[in-house]
């Protein structure tokens, strides 16, 4: 061990000498995952735009594991990058890493998901959709569809995930706020996964049957799971109104065919572009807003042909 330390010490000295090299600025991007319907296009948008801007991207995938992400923050700091874009999967856990980055004078911004207020002092900006507002918009939309009364099931994302908390919280709070007569029969977690949503929906349909007069899914993938389960169980009964989020292509088709009532378009490409553009501003020494939202649009059968699907 002692030997190794000396080796590292000598290495550091050598590195100090060479550190003066002028190189392209490097941005560390700690993303949620490699393979995911929403995350992948956002990743691609960042990579593409960074190349145009002449920034080098160090892309690290957490694979939906917070622990991995915390460790990757350390890697970014050790690598001495010029900026960090973090996709947080937990509202709190990254704070010490953010503090470390700040101590090392590395500006950090959050993409897509919010963190708690305590994190604000350590980050420069948060770019991305307001997931709480999405929940509220979904509540309004479903309330319209159901005429303010009925009973629904909520198919939520991963338990404990910031997006899930925001989308469910905004929805439930909004229903209470507008005094809606809609009653929530049950909330199940299907982890943003189509197969899990399918299995959970089968059980919900068996259990509540025709009591279900509306559905709120935290994303379109899970809405698809419910639709498949309904078609399987009750092919002859009309589908209850379903509200999803994200604005995927196949959700647009479902809205056209009447299988879904509405979705909320939130473009992963916009999401990625806004983050990398903001980071470029910061690196150029410009001031940026602490909160930069991306536009959200509610899509129903009325405007489905006028809006571009998100992905």
């Amino acid at each position: 061990m002692a030997f190794k330390k000396t080796m590292f010490g000598a290495g550091t000295a050598a590195l100090m000498l060479t550190a003066g090299w002028a190189q392209a600025q490097t941005v560390c991007y700690v993303t949620a995952a490699d393979a995911h319907a929403y995350v992948t296009p956002a990743n691609e948008a960042i990579d593409g735009r960074a190349a145009e801007l002449g920034l080098e991207i160090l892309s690290l995938s957490q694979n939906f594991d917070v622990q991995t992400g915390i460790e990757q923050m350390s890697t970014c700091i050790a690598r001495g990058v010029d900026g960090i874009i973090l996709w947080p999967l937990d509202p709190q856990a990254y704070i010490p890493g953010l503090a470390r980055a700040q101590a090392a004078d590395i500006p950090t911004i959050l993409i897509n998901s919010p963190m708690n207020e305590e994190a604000d002092q350590f980050i420069v900006s948060f770019t991305g959709p307001d997931v709480y507002e999405e929940g509220e918009m979904a509540a309004d939309s479903l309330n319209d569809a159901m005429g303010g009364a009925g009973s629904i099931v909520i198919i939520a994302g991963q338990a404990g995930n910031g997006t899930t908390i925001g989308r469910v919280g905004g929805f439930v709070d909004r229903l209470a706020e507008i005094g809606s007569g809609i009653e929530v029969l049950d909330t199940v977690n299907a982890d943003f996964d189509q197969q899990k949503a399918l299995v959970a929906s089968r059980d919900l349909i068996t259990r509540f049957g025709d009591e279900i007069t509306g559905v709120y899914a935290n994303d379109d993938t899970m809405a698809r799971g419910f639709i498949d389960a309904w078609l399987e169980a009750k092919p002859d009964t009309p589908m209850p109104p379903i509200v999803g989020i994200n604005g995927q292509k196949d959700a647009f088709e479902s809205i056209r065919s009447g299988e879904m009532y509405s979705t909320i378009v939130q473009s992963p490409i916009e999401d990625g572009l806004l983050a990398i553009n903001t980071m470029a501003e910061i690196l150029a020494g410009n001031e940026v807003e602490a909160r930069l939202p991306i536009p959200l649009t509610v899509v129903t059968s009325e405007n489905v042909d006028m809006v571009e699907p998100a992905f």
Binding site: K5, F8, T12, A14, L15, E71, T75, A78, G80
Partner: peptide
């Protein structure tokens, strides 16, 4: 940039959990 004290200490910290 791998051979540096910061890399070592942070790498070590990540391994320790």
């Amino acid at each position: 940039g791998f051979v540096s004290l910061t890399t070592f200490s942070l790498g070590f910290d990540r391994g320790s959990t």
